[in-house]
Design a protein around this nucleic acid. Structure first.
Lengths: 223, 223
DNA sequence: ATCTTCGAGGAGAAGGATGCGCATGGGGCA
DNA sequence: TGCCCCATGCGCATCCTTCTCCTCGAAGAT
């Protein structure tokens, strides 16, 4: 799970980030609203935690903007204890939960898992590996936000690999899953398609996501 | 979230109740219109789902009665596939959305969350995708402000696509939603209608809204 | 230890076959 | 008379095969 955390008190920010990461939640931490907006609109997070009062774009404004763009990412708002009306407004705007500062990091982590799971039924069609994202419903793939055109076979092969990042698959295994029948030992289809995916996905980037394990098979990411 | 569900086919009623509750929606299920009226006027529900054709007070009558009492609770109507005029009448009476039976429970749940999130009274019968706008009430479609004439089938196919911008639908899926029964695998109806919509909507514009995903289906818009 | 050799496995490129989706015209039905 | 549906031919993206060249790594020689 990867989230964006917006909070302008840098001390609290780093404290919360650390605590959440101990619980296995990846956190991108920012203290400026405009920066948060940039990241929220360019990265498919599993959830956002937004402080309402921050420099730049405030949390409510970001939330409103996202919902107008039909972005249903789960959002938890952070409010000062006094600002009740804003809580209400936040929930009306489509926030999933709110927390009053100060808070226990453990509780924030628990709520994050809850809202992420609740939305999972609607939104678990996203698979991410590093900066590579696959949207199963829209059948689109992007790397670093740039869309990549894939044919049907290419897409399905990539999907299979991305569902288990880091895991090495043998050729037979891949063939059975993606093509659906037993492999003619003479063919090199898998190699050909791996090569095509490499050309489209790894070519323009320094960081290579595909990994060849000689004599065994292929894996994506996870290192 | 707690809702009232009125549907006279008891089998469908219990099935839908179960499905919605799995998604965390509390459901009071009734099969009689008079009973539904009693409960709707005495309990503050987050939304109502009303079948139009039921024994006792019918769904449209309940809706009308509530609006006359200035009750702005969100309402989704259930209609048979054939009854087009009643959809429009329902929207005119202040319904927030309609669904054609049979429907997928997940979709009903999604729409419930949508209408419940909206502020009461600002029901929105406009669906927009980029510069393409569909008015469900007036049953009119415009692109860049220019009105486009569509036949009934064309309209309903477009409506289905526009309700989930960017999402790719398979031919069978489309056929089941728009035509309502199982597809003869030999027909190419969907292709023909997509082609017609393209001719009317995409032809004169540089930016193409329709997207073909070979071997899978079609989508509209979506970034 | 380091270097050299060699075989198998993998990368890469290119061309033919396939079948999906586009396009269009015509017949049937309210 | 529109609208809906069916049927047919064609073009092109996709798929798969084939062939060649390159790379890796083991094993023996120095």
């Amino acid at each position: 799970m990867r989230i964006l955390l917006l909070e302008d008190q840098t001390k609290l920010l780093s404290f919360a980030k650390k605590g959440l990461e101990e619980q296995g939640i990846q956190v991108d931490a920012v203290s400026d609203g405009d920066e948060a907006w940039e990241m929220a609109t360019s990265t498919p997070y599993d959830a956002l935690v937004l402080d309402i009062m921050v420099p730049g774009r405030d949390g409510l404004s970001i939330l409103r903007g996202l919902r107008e763009k039909r972005n249903a990412v789960p959002v938890i708002l952070l409010t000062a204890r006094t600002t009740l009306p804003e809580k209400i407004e936040g929930l009306n705007l489509g926030a999933d939960d709110y927390m009053t500062k100060p808070f226990f990091v453990e509780e924030l982590a628990a709520r994050l898992r809850t809202v992420a799971r609740r939305k999972a039924g609607e939104a678990n069609h996203l698979i991410r590996v590093e900066d590579l994202a696959m949207d199963l419903l829209a059948r689109k793939v992007t790397r670093a936000g740039v869309e990549i055109e894939l044919s049907t076979r290419e897409f399905e092969l990539l999907e299979h690999l991305m569902r288990s990042p880091g895991r090495v698959f043998g050729r037979m295994q891949i063939y059975e899953h993606v093509w659906g029948y037993n492999m003619d030992p003479e063919t090199n289809l898998v190699e050909v398609y791996i090569q095509r995916l490499r050309a489209k996905i790894d070519k323009d980037y320094d960081k290579k996501l595909f990994r060849t394990v000689r004599g065994v098979g292929y894996a994506i990411g996870g290192a």
